[in-house]
Structures are given as C-alpha cells and as structure tokens.
Design a protein around this nucleic acid. Structure first.
Lengths: 347, 347
DNA sequence: TTGTACGCGTTATCAC
DNA sequence: GTGATAACGCGTACAA
C-alpha cells in the first residue's frame, strides 16, 4: 500500500536514482547494481529496490547512462530512401533485430546523395550512435577517412565482395546478374538491351551492370551503348525506357532491368504496346517484390531476401560492438524464372 | 600549420570542450557560447574557437548535452510497419522534416500489436525522446494514462477527427470512404461488397469501414455481413478475397477495398477470372501507390498524400516542443476516378 | 564580453 | 554484499 505522498505521477522534478535509493533505504550504488547486475546483490535488497522503483515510477536516464558508459544503445542507419520495397523491408527487419538485443535504431536518409549521406553520418555520430549501418561501399575520400578514423564499427549493406576490407552484408550484385545473363544466353538470346537505375553514386546499380557486361563478354556478346538506358527508379520510367528500347533496330530479344520498378514498368508497357512477352521479348528484373509475381505476366527476377540483409546487418554491427569479430556475410540470391522470360524468338 | 602533437585522430582519450578551450586559449564557457549562441561572443574569439575546434576535431557529446538540458534532439516514432507504401513514404518525409530542424528520428515498429507498441514507446521514452509520433488514436487504457502522464508531446498520425483531444495529423478516413460510397451510389450501384484489413487494433481500417457503413445507411443501403471480408494486407490476400466475393449470389456490382494492396490483388484476380472491370464489377481502393494507376486497368482510389502526413506530423511535434500550440491538421484527400469503376451493370 | 564553479543522473572504484 | 565518492562532458548562473 502506497501512502498518498508518493504517487508515481507526482509533478515533482523527475525522480532519479537517489530517490529510489532513499525510499529503499539503500545507497545509489546498490540500486544501480540491483538494476544492472541483479546477481551481484542479495535477494532481499533486490526486492526492496524493485519495489521502490515501482513505487516512485523510476525510469533510468539514458543520457546519464550514456555519458558515463560511453555507449548509447543506439545504432544509426543511413539509407538512400526508405520508401523503396527492398530498403523498407530491410529496415523493418533491422529494427526487429536491434530491438531484440535492446538497441534502438536512429534512421536517416541520403536520397542517393553522397554529400548528404556524409552529413547524415556525422549527425548520427554526434548523437553518439554505437554503430552504423550504411548502404553500398563506395565513399568519397574525405568521407572514407572520417569513417576509418572513428572508433565505431560500421557495416556496408546490400553489397558483398569477398575481398572487401570492411564487413559487408548483402548479395553479390554482379554475380547475380551474371547468372541471369547465363540463363538468358542459354535460352538462345543474343541481342540484349538493358535499362538501369543511374549508376552515378550507386555502386549496386553499377555492380549489376558490370555483372551483365562481364557475363556477356564471356559469351562473346555485348550490349551496344545505344541499347543501354539509364533513368530513375519508377514504374513510369520503366515504361518510358521500354518504349525507347523498342525503337532499336534490330530489336533486342531480351531486356534486362536493373531493379523491380523498372521491370514492372517495362512489362506493363510491353503489354500496352502489344509486344508479346516472352515470345517477342523476354523481360527480367532484379529484386523481388510481391507485384512482380502477381502481374498478368509474372516477371523473372533475382530474388534477394532483403529482410535477411537487414537482420544480418543489424546482428553484425552488434557482434562487432561486443567484440565478436564479424567479417560480414554474403546473402544468397536466387534466379526465379517466371513467365516473362523464355527462348529467344528467331526473328 | 598544426604541429605533430595535435593530430585530430590522436588516439588519446576523446577530445572534449576543455581541450578546445585550452587550444583556443579561452575558457570552456566561451567555447560553449561560441558554439551555441555565436552572436553573444566577439568575432575574434569566435574565429579562434572555431579554428581550435577544427584543429582538434571536436564533436560535441550529445549525451552530456542532453543530461544537462533535458533535451535530446530526438523524436521517436512507432509505426505498425515500415515496408508499407504509405508508411514508408511518410517516414521518408518525416525524416526530412526533422533533419531540416536538426532533429533525428528514433524509429520503432509495432507490427499492429498494441502491447508491442506500448513497450516500444516506453523504450523510446527511456531513450529520452523529446516527442513522439504514433499512428492512430486508439490505445489500451493503461497505455493512454502512461502517455498523458508523460510531459512529452505526441501526435497521432494517419487519423483525423475534429473533436479529438490529442493533436492528430491525417486524412479523415471515414469521410473519405463515405465520399467514395456517394460516388458509387451515384453511378447506380446498389449491391456492395467490401474487403478490408482486419479492424482489430486498427482504427484506420475501422474508420474506413464505418465511413462506408454510414454512407450506405444514409442512402438506405447496407453491406450484408456475409459480403464483408477481412484479411491481411497483401496482393495475394486481395486475390483470395475477391474470389470469395465473387461467389456471392447475387453478385455485388461494386467492390470496396480497404487498402491499396487488397485493391490491386482484387483487380488482378478479376482479370485472371475474366470478370470485366468495370462492366461487371467496379473496384475501388484506398490510398494511392504508383502501381494502382499503372495496372492494365487503373484503379479508382482515395489519394492521400502520405508524405504530407509525415512532414506535417513532424513539424507539429516540433512546434509543440517549442511551445507553439499546435492542434494537428487535417490532410486533404481526393477521390481519383480511374477505369476500374463506372456505372453499375443492370444484371 | 569573458571566466569560475557547480549541477545534471548514472556508473565504477574503491574501501568497508 | 554494501556504501561513499569521484568521474563522465557540457551548459549556465554568477561573478569579474
């Protein structure tokens, strides 16, 4: 039974550790221990302390704790955009993985702008994040130095390269696309076109393009420069770029799309134009969102478990933080063959 | 020219205000002022201080600052999910609005679980967020008390009710759906079916349903219980529910979908089944994502500027924080009529 | 305009 | 096992 004078919502200045200590009749040190290392304190005291905490409604002050321990329990992440299927799913999963280990996510976005990304990182660092999760691995020189100078661990996500110096968690973009190309060549395709997200300050897009280029080269093939189209990521853009690709002469028999939105746009536009998919044109994408499989003509694509990327990236930083050296992880991908691709037409 | 002993990346214990003060030959108080209220210090000193800051690479410690000022420069947000088109866009915009005013976003997700939402909020509060952005306005009793007891401002987003006691930022879900119903009735529809996200612990879904119900009632119409289907939010679910709706006898002439994914699923399934849209069935949705307008049959829907919601919500909390009383804001919606809806068939 | 000195709430180091 | 006390790094009265 609490007597009236100790209501938890008392409008007094906020309750602190000392108040709890006073009520429980112990020292502040004991309260601290009872909370942080319960096993190091006698059971009787532990109970007294917990009771007192309940009574006064004490909530530990994270700032004070951080000031003292040099750790904030906070992980920062900077993503190019949040409203993109794969990133959103990754963040979702990241959040859960962090919460499970009692960390909290400080989120920022860079809008695909390296400068902005840098400044966001600085802001997060000032906020005292214990670790960072970034996207991609290409950084401006000054930026790179800044990061390595920091003592806080960071992870590059959505990329994987075996020889990378920093831990990264993601699929091997280039290899995934190469595998897709192998499949298409196997299907008899020889004339390719590609529509891709602009590779400027986007190393994932660049890696995908490189994967395509090298795989084709390996088969003695290539995408002529005029058959390569770059643009933003949207369905509308995919539609527009497909129209351009269809003006090529001779027409390509296979169209490789750098991401899911472009693929969806390309497919829908092909349907609108009456281009038969896959008879006249095979369309393949990258990344897998629900839409791609539900469209009138489901789209062949590279499936990457984006949530895996998020979850693993989160666990990786936390491992680094706790000293367990973590070397990053390759996230598997899978070529999902659907109705939008098939044997090359003989035209 | 810096002499060797003062490298910014020196592995000494982290640089602090005192180091800057020492280098600049001033007191710590002056450095603090020069940083936080530059106008209150002479120009010469300001320059000296800034130079020293650069030299030693000082970064203010947010924890110490927070401890002292009781403000963290952090806003917490708890969303049901992040990987959902509208939420993702809102978070995107929120993030920008906060960054513009030098705040940072602490993000958590509740997975539509009120208990989890509550615990996430507690965690954010312990982290010392200055304000909160939540979704919806229905809360469990204990939760509600907890919130009102806190001295920190919060905003309910994605909902708007003129008589709400807490500031909210969002569209009037019920009114939007009512307006959609009016349109459909005007088009001659009398037999309705609705597929909706489960209304359990989702007041937005509930409000939309209520809007439909009341509007129909106003026209002397109703959706019979067996014509109301609830499920999760996904395209696949929309497909499944449409199949169920099509088994009704007599068939509905208009199908109202509670969100965008359900609408897309319903439309695609209708196409698959050979149900003519809108001749045999008008399909309307809620919310607007790019897909809806790009499908073979573009979908009539309620368009809400989700990014507006995020932006305004962010600005609102910050206003509250700065004492400018803010009463929330109604975000406008718009009925976008596309090819998926039309006059009722006379069958 | 500038410097001194204290306090913010917690944890860690010592004694006991 | 427990208690006193000194940091942690910054902001800010207050005095100069």
């Amino acid at each position: 039974m609490t007597d009236g004078k100790a209501r938890p919502d008392s409008s007094m200045s906020r309750v602190g550790l000392r108040d709890v200590a006073r009520i429980a009749g112990v020292s502040t040190a004991t309260v601290s221990r009872a909370v942080n290392r319960p096993e190091s304190v006698s059971e009787a005291l532990r109970d007294r302390v917990n009771l007192a905490i309940e009574q006064v409604g004490w909530v530990p002050n994270a700032a004070a704790r951080a000031l003292n321990s040099n750790r904030t329990g906070t992980i920062g992440a900077v993503f190019p955009a949040l409203a993109l299927g794969d990133f959103a799913r990754a963040i979702d999963a990241m959040q859960d993985a962090l919460a499970a280990r009692d960390y909290v996510l400080l989120l920022a976005r860079s809008n695909y702008d390296p400068e902005l990304e840098f400044s966001q990182v600085r802001k997060l660092v000032e906020r005292g994040v214990d670790g960072l999760i970034l996207v991609g691995h290409s950084r401006a020189p000054g930026y790179q130095d800044y990061l390595s100078r920091l003592k806080i661990p960071y992870i590059n996500s959505f990329v994987y390269e075996a020889d990378a110096v920093m831990p990264c968690v993601g699929p091997d973009n280039a290899q995934a696309m190469a595998q897709m190309v192998d499949y298409l060549v196997e299907q008899g395709h020889r004339r390719f076109s590609m529509i891709a997200q602009t590779t400027r300050s986007n190393d994932r897009a660049l890696a995908r393009y490189e994967g395509v280029r090298r795989a084709l080269e390996h088969h003695g093939l290539a995408i002529p420069p005029r058959a390569l189209f770059e643009g933003k990521w949207s369905i509308a853009e995919g539609r527009a770029l497909l129209r351009q690709a269809m003006t090529l002469d001779p027409r390509p028999t296979a169209l490789i799309c750098g991401n899911s939105l472009l693929a969806v746009g390309a497919l829908l536009e092909a349907l609108s134009l009456g281009v038969a998919v896959p008879q006249q044109l095979s369309i393949v994408g990258y990344d897998d969102v629900e839409f791609m499989s539900e469209l009138p003509v489901p789209i062949t694509t590279v499936r990457v478990a984006s949530d895996e990327v998020g979850r693993v990236a989160a666990d990786c930083v936390l491992d680094l933080l706790e000293g367990k050296a973590s070397r990053g992880q390759r996230i598997p991908f899978e070529i999902v063959i659907r109705a939008s691709s098939g044997p090359a037409c003989d035209t």
